[in-house]
């Protein structure tokens, strides 16, 4: 009978040998991106958003008509070779307005999310890192803000500031602050207790460095996901404010405003509401698909 001698047959791999079998180095971010590309829905989402970004950037080259030029003779025309998406009640080309509207919606989404992200993160870090009464104060303010339906709060803010696209943007940023703030706070609190933070402290690192180099990068994943999803919500909220007449003012080609202006022609000229509605839906869907994909890609539990 053959005796099994594990020491001879399966030598314990030396650290060198083990390390060589490990695949090529990849930073966790690169790996997350690779995961994201494998997710079909996220890729579709990225295509949709890239498409809207492209048409927003090259709007003047793509549009056959002027944004606000009225043509009384051609009002409420159906889609045709001349007017691809038809015309509205003032005879303006809907395709042109949709293309320029992409600029506004993406801009609103970007600035509202960035603003909410910056202020929300700062407040969240303060609350999470310092705790005690700072946390108490900031968290209660967040709670109060979250107690209102967000759109109601936005309407209240715009009512104070006066209706305009800029004020709508500010209102949307404000109502999103507690969402980011709470997320960052909870993340900072949990990361603060991690052993590698204690290790960093044991190295003799200053708390500022620990916060910037260790706490923040490890809190990024859910923030990125929330920011992507927040893009979609912000665009939707801007459209809602526009629809209510509290956002962009005429003749700005804002999608929500276009919906509201065209709603009385919904039966006689459905294209006037169909295309702005479809655009809002597509952009929001695109961001949500990317956000969902990112959530999966950045989830450490999905790591193998």
């Amino acid at each position: 009978m053959e005796t099994v001698r594990p020491d001879k047959q399966t030598p314990i791999p030396s650290p060198e040998q083990e390390a060589h079998t490990v695949p090529a180095p990849a930073s966790p971010w690169k790996e997350a991106f690779r995961q994201l590309r494998r997710n079909k829905l996220a890729v579709v989402g990225m295509f949709i958003i890239s498409f809207f970004i492209l048409i927003a950037v090259f709007a003047p080259l793509l549009t056959p008509h002027q944004v606000s030029t009225m043509n009384a003779a051609d009002r409420l025309q159906g889609p045709s070779a001349d007017y691809w998406f038809g015309t509205d009640d003032l005879g303006r080309d809907i395709f042109t307005r949709i293309v320029y509207g992409a600029r506004i919606s993406l801009m609103v989404g970007f600035f509202a999310v960035t603003g909410a992200l910056i202020f929300g993160s700062m407040l969240g870090i303060l609350a999470g890192y310092f705790g005690r009464w700072v946390d108490m104060l900031i968290s209660r303010v967040f709670d109060i803000m979250l107690a209102f339906p967000s759109i109601l709060l936005a309407i209240a803010i715009v009512a104070i500031l006066g209706p305009s696209l800029q004020n709508a943007l500010i209102a949307i940023a404000i109502i999103n602050i507690p969402i980011f703030g709470r997320l960052v706070r909870s993340k900072v609190i949990s990361i603060r207790e991690e052993e590698y933070i204690m290790a960093a402290k044991a190295q003799g690192m200053k708390s500022g460095r620990i916060l910037v180099h260790h706490v923040l990068p490890n809190s990024m994943a859910p923030i990125i996901v929330q920011a992507t999803l927040g893009f979609g919500t912000a665009i939707l909220e801007a459209a809602a404010l526009g629809f209510l007449g509290l956002g962009a003012q005429p003749p700005t080609p804002e999608w929500g405003r276009m919906l509201s202006d065209a709603r009385q022609y919904i039966t006689s000229a459905p294209w006037t509401v169909l295309f702005p509605g479809l655009s809002i839906m597509l952009v929001v869907l695109g961001f949500n698909m990317i956000g969902d994909g990112l959530r999966d890609a950045l989830d450490p539990k999905m790591k193998h």
């Binding site: 180095p25 930073s27 966790p28 991690e194 052993e195 590698y196 204690m198 290790a199 960093a200 044991a202 190295q203 003799g204 180099h213 260790h214 990068p217 490890n218 450490p300």
Partner: peptide, 20 residues
Amino acid sequence: RRDMQIIFQDPYASLNPRHN
């Protein structure tokens, strides 16, 4: 702290996963 260091129990939790 330079002169007194520590080795932690859990080698999975004590290394920052985002740093090489």
